[in-house]
Amino acid sequence: MNVLVFIALLLLAVWLLRRVMQHNKQQPEHKDPRPLAERIDAILPQTQCGQCGHAGCQPYAAALAKGEDSINRCPPGGEEGIRKLAALLHTDYLPFAADAPPSKPKAVALIDESTCIGCTLCIQACPVDAILGSAKQMHTVLAAECTGCELCLVPCPVDCISMRPATSSPSDWRWGYPVIVIKAIKSEARP
């Protein structure tokens, strides 16, 4: 009798073990089939500004995938970007490099149209084709397409391009982080 109970328990244990193993098998660790460089590229902000020292976001992602560069060189990505990169690459969080340019809020280039001479230099510099115009004609920036990379500022021979903070519409607005109101406690309330 004892032996039968023991065998029954053993069978139950084996069955339970199999269930657990099946459960574990059914939920494998989610793996992204894309190559590592592409997954890194998906995290990067796609400003294409070249502040990391590479020619764009994709070359930087390729260098990161090869381990040739550090993850703290992307100012537009911000600290949030560094954290995401660190999580993806299984490395430690690094603060911004001391020589890296500071992170700025998103801005949009604006061409002073009365000064513009129509040299097309900024059009050739723009990495996302966000500047419209032709030779000896006035140029203008498509604000919706501008990534704020500031690459058009340097080539402009008449310095007619300035960066303006991106305008926010009511639909862009979001609830602020809930703040705890700090109150002054009366001094006599303290012991």
Partner: peptide, 21 residues
């Protein structure tokens, strides 16, 4: 979350434009 999604969409758009360029 919504604004993050929007930013991601904008980034994808910028990537697409950059690749086309």
């Amino acid at each position: 979350y919504q604004s993050t999604q929007q930013q991601q969409q904008q980034a994808d758009h910028a990537r697409q434009r950059h690749r086309f360029r």
